[in-house]
Measured scan of single mutants.
Amino acid sequence: ELELEEVDLYRMNSQDKLGLTVCYRTDDEDDIGIYISEIDPNSIAAKDGRIREGDRIIQINGIEVQNREEAVALLTSEENKNFSLLIARP
């Protein structure tokens, strides 16, 4: 049973970094989820404190993420200042 949490992050300008590194968990081929492998200690996500390494990203801004490229594109989008992440953890 996964616990879901919605985390809203806000950046003042497009130079601010959310600070999330995303990856696949390669140990299970059936698991195509996108996971947070690293959080930059000086980033918006780290200061917010709710997202943890190992969390799975389900949605970004209401869009279900299917692959790492999509997640990276959404997280690094210059147009977005508000990010709503739906994350899951066991």
Rank of each mutant, 00 (worst) to 15 (best):
E1S: 06
E1V: 04
E1F: 15
E1Q: 03
L2K: 15
L2Q: 08
L2W: 03
L2V: 07
L2T: 10
E3L: 09
E3Y: 13
E3C: 11
E3Q: 05
L4F: 14
E5P: 02
E6A: 14
E6S: 12
V7W: 01
V7E: 00
V7N: 00
V7I: 11
V7P: 00
V7G: 00
V7D: 00
D8H: 15
D8T: 01
D8C: 04
D8V: 14
D8S: 05
L9Q: 01
Y10A: 10
Y10F: 15
R11H: 14
R11S: 03
R11E: 02
R11C: 02
M12H: 13
N13P: 04
N13H: 14
N13A: 15
S14N: 11
S14P: 09
S14F: 05
S14Q: 04
Q15L: 09
D16K: 03
D16Q: 09
D16Y: 06
D16R: 06
K17T: 09
L18S: 01
L18P: 03
L18A: 04
L18F: 02
L20S: 00
L20E: 00
L20P: 01
L20I: 15
T21F: 14
T21M: 06
T21Q: 08
T21K: 06
V22T: 11
V22A: 04
C23N: 08
C23M: 12
C23E: 09
C23R: 13
Y24S: 12
Y24H: 13
Y24N: 07
R25S: 07
R25H: 14
R25G: 09
R25I: 15
R25M: 10
R25L: 11
T26P: 12
T26D: 07
T26G: 06
T26M: 15
D27K: 04
D27L: 13
D27W: 05
D27V: 10
D28N: 11
D28R: 13
E29S: 12
E29M: 09
E29R: 13
E29V: 12
D30V: 06
D30E: 15
D30R: 10
I32L: 13
G33L: 06
G33M: 15
G33I: 07
G33W: 12
G33H: 15
I34S: 07
I34T: 09
I34R: 01
Y35T: 12
I36R: 00
I36P: 00
I36A: 04
I36G: 00
S37I: 09
S37L: 08
S37E: 05
S37R: 09
S37M: 10
E38C: 09
E38D: 08
E38I: 11
E38W: 05
E38F: 14
I39E: 00
I39Y: 01
I39R: 02
D40V: 13
D40A: 11
D40Q: 13
D40S: 11
P41S: 12
P41A: 10
P41C: 15
N42D: 15
N42C: 09
N42G: 12
N42H: 07
N42V: 09
S43Y: 04
I44K: 02
I44S: 04
A45N: 01
A45Y: 02
A45W: 03
A46I: 03
A46D: 06
A46T: 07
K47G: 14
K47Q: 11
K47F: 07
K47Y: 12
D48F: 02
D48S: 10
G49I: 04
G49R: 07
G49A: 10
R50F: 02
R50W: 01
I51V: 12
I51N: 00
R52K: 09
R52D: 09
R52C: 12
E53N: 10
E53L: 08
G54N: 12
G54R: 06
G54T: 05
G54H: 06
G54S: 04
G54I: 00
R56S: 14
I57G: 00
I57P: 01
I57K: 00
I57F: 02
I58E: 12
I58C: 08
I58Q: 07
I58F: 05
I58N: 14
Q59F: 03
Q59H: 06
Q59E: 15
I60T: 01
I60E: 00
I60G: 00
I60D: 00
I60Q: 00
N61F: 01
I63V: 14
I63N: 08
I63K: 05
E64A: 04
E64C: 03
E64K: 08
E64N: 04
E64P: 05
V65K: 02
V65L: 11
V65T: 07
Q66C: 04
Q66Y: 07
Q66I: 13
N67M: 15
N67I: 04
R68G: 08
R68Y: 15
R68H: 15
R68Q: 10
R68F: 13
E69G: 05
E69T: 09
E69S: 10
E69D: 09
E69W: 05
E69I: 06
E69V: 06
E69H: 15
E69A: 06
E70F: 05
E70M: 11
A71Q: 03
A71K: 01
A71T: 12
A71W: 04
A71S: 05
A71R: 01
V72Y: 09
V72M: 14
V72A: 10
V72R: 09
V72W: 13
A73E: 15
A73T: 09
A73M: 13
A73K: 14
L74A: 12
L74M: 09
L75Q: 02
L75R: 01
T76R: 05
S77E: 10
S77C: 12
S77P: 07
S77F: 15
E78P: 05
E78L: 08
E79A: 07
E79V: 06
E79P: 08
E79M: 07
N80D: 09
N80G: 12
N80T: 13
K81I: 13
N82I: 10
N82T: 12
N82Y: 14
N82C: 06
N82R: 08
F83P: 06
F83D: 02
F83W: 06
F83T: 11
S84K: 13
S84V: 06
L85V: 09
L85M: 09
L86F: 05
L86M: 07
L86Q: 15
L86A: 11
L86V: 15
L86W: 03
I87Y: 02
I87E: 01
A88F: 11
A88L: 04
R89I: 01
R89P: 13
R89V: 01
R89F: 01
R89D: 01
P90N: 09
P90L: 02
P90S: 03
P90A: 04
